[in-house]
C-alpha cells in the first residue's frame, strides 16, 4: 500500500521537502499542505526536482492551502493533482501509514 508523506514546509525554507522526496519510495504518495504548497508552483527552481519525483510517486497539493497563498490550479506543476480536506482523508486511508515531514 505504501506511505502517504505529508510535507508542510516550503522547499525554500528548510530541507524538509528535499528529505521527504529522498525518503519517498516508488508507489508512495506525497501531499503538500500548508507552506508545502509553495513547492507545487510550476516554473520555480524547485519544480524540476518535484517533476522528477512524479515518475515514481503520485503527488498532490491541498487546494485550500494553494488558494490561501494566492495560487490557482493552473499555477501548479503539470502532473500534480489537487485535493481538498476530504481528499486528504481519502489519501490517508488508501496508504498503509502516514509520515509527516515537518
Amino acid at each position: 500500500m505504501g506511505t502517504l508523506h505529508t510535507i508542510n514546509k516550503s522547499p525554500f525554507e528548510r530541507n524538509s521537502f528535499a528529505t521527504c522526496l529522498a525518503h519517498a519510495s516508488a508507489g508512495d504518495v506525497i501531499l503538500m499542505i500548508e507552506d508545502g504548497v509553495v513547492g507545487a508552483r510550476k516554473g520555480s527552481s524547485f519544480a524540476p526536482a518535484l517533476a522528477a519525483k512524479l515518475a515514481s510517486c503520485a503527488i498532490y497539493a491541498l487546494g485550500p492551502d494553494l488558494a490561501a497563498r494566492g495560487m490557482k490550479p493552473e499555477d501548479v506543476l503539470e502532473g500534480v493533482k489537487l485535493v481538498d480536506y476530504a481528499g486528504f482523508v481519502d489519501l490517508t486511508t488508501e496508504k498503509a501509514r502516514v509520515c509527516a515531514w515537518l
Partner: peptide, 15 residues
C-alpha cells in the same frame, strides 16, 4: 535503507 525502514512501519511519529 532508511526509506525502506519507513515503508516497513505501522506508526510513524515525527519530531
Amino acid at each position: 535503507e532508511m526509506a525502506a525502514l519507513i515503508r516497513s512501519q505501522d506508526v510513524i511519529l515525527s519530531f
